[in-house]
């Protein structure tokens, strides 16, 4: 079971990291979300134990570890907030620059900066 989790985490983190290297802003967001979920899965895998639900276990029953589940749900919430934040930031970039391509973005910024410099010289 641990091996399965390890493979799943590896694949998710790898695909996330691959997407992070793309110049497209939205692909980067998806990459971060994948990496976040790889981390969540690692959290679950860190305390893998089989048992009854941990609300008042009866004698002879071993409860499963509730701590990892509490941690994972917290991490998922943080991941959700982060995804929303990144999406809205990416959207802002898109609305103000009309592009989601990081290369084009840096070109546009360089162009604007040289224009500004030229204006300064003229003044």
């Amino acid at each position: 079971m641990t091996l399965l989790f390890a493979i799943a985490v590896g694949v998710m983190f790898g695909s996330g990291a691959f997407l992070l290297l793309k110049p497209d802003l939205f692909r980067i967001v998806v990459g971060i979300v994948l990496v976040a979920n790889a981390a969540n899965l690692t959290l679950i895998a860190s305390g893998l134990s089989r048992g009854v639900s941990p609300i008042l276990p009866l004698d002879g029953e071993t409860p499963s570890d509730p701590l990892v589940q509490a941690m994972t749900v917290t991490a998922i919430v943080i991941g959700l907030a982060v995804a929303a934040l990144l999406l809205s930031l990416a959207y802002r970039v898109y609305t103000s620059h009309d592009t989601v391509d990081l290369d084009e973005l840096s070109h546009a910024e360089a162009r604007r900066e040289s224009e500004l410099e030229r204006e300064e010289v003229e003044i």
């Binding site: 907030a81 999406l87 809205s88 959207y91 898109y94």
Partner: peptide, 17 residues
């Protein structure tokens, strides 16, 4: 509140476009 807030913020940005 948070999820509706996120949705509204993104929707508003979209209408601006």
């Amino acid at each position: 509140g948070c999820v509706v807030g996120f949705a509204r913020a993104i929707a508003r940005a979209g209408e601006g476009v």
